[in-house]
Amino acid sequence: MSAEPAGPPGPDPLGGELRKVARVVLLDAQDRILLLHGHEPDDTADDWWFTPGGGVEGDETREEAALRELAEETGITDVELGPVLWQRKCSFPFAGRRWDQDEWYYLARTTGTRTVLAAAGLTELERRSVAGARWWTCRELTEAHETVYPTRLAELLRTLLDEGPPARPKVLDTEIV
């Protein structure tokens, strides 16, 4: 596995300790991206789409966390993790608390395209807040009216598909919701 690239320079704009998160930009053979559909645990109308991933646990690397989270949330294990594409700091309310995160987005590809995912490793909170998953084309993502995180994902995906992975991870704007 590759070494972790250096994080963005400068002070933490969110203040305090950031949760280390690894996310996966999973593409299939048709260049569709897999997104999970999430919502507030007690309000299914407050919903959004997001990439698989989650927090680093114990002494695991971000790469290990990315693969573990992908397997837990989707059942997909037949991937090879690629480079870090993007890094972003974000802060958002969810399930009654504020989450301050330092997220790294890894590229991964799969040859299979499951329509029914085996999300057997979800935590209790995830079982209450993840409603499903779907594969999106770049065009569908561009035309979507749903909330998607990171907010510029359609543009980022288009650049990735047109130009390939960046030579160094792109640092995205901090998102505070």
Rank of each mutant, 00 (worst) to 15 (best):
P93S: 07
E63R: 11
L67T: 11
K89D: 07
G132M: 08
G112H: 03
L125D: 13
V84D: 04
A65W: 04
S129G: 05
K89A: 07
E124H: 08
T61P: 05
A66W: 02
D100I: 01
R98V: 14
E124V: 12
G75F: 09
L117K: 05
L85W: 02
T113K: 10
Q87Y: 07
Y106T: 08
R127S: 08
T77F: 03
R97M: 07
D78C: 08
R88C: 08
E126A: 14
R98P: 00
T123R: 13
T115W: 14
E103H: 06
D78T: 13
Y105V: 15
P83W: 06
Q87N: 02
E124N: 14
A65D: 11
T74P: 02
V79D: 04
G132E: 08
T123W: 06
E64Y: 03
L81I: 09
E69M: 01
R68C: 10
P93K: 07
L107H: 13
E63T: 04
R88N: 07
D78K: 15
E63A: 14
T74C: 09
G96L: 11
G96F: 06
Y105E: 12
K89P: 00
Q87I: 08
A95W: 02
K89Y: 07
R109Q: 10
V79P: 00
R127T: 03
R68S: 02
S129K: 08
W135P: 00
R109A: 10
F92I: 00
F94I: 09
S129P: 03
Y106I: 07
T115M: 09
L107V: 08
Q87A: 05
T113E: 14
L117V: 09
E60Y: 06
E72W: 01
R68G: 12
E103W: 02
E63D: 14
R114I: 08
R127V: 08
G96C: 01
G96A: 04
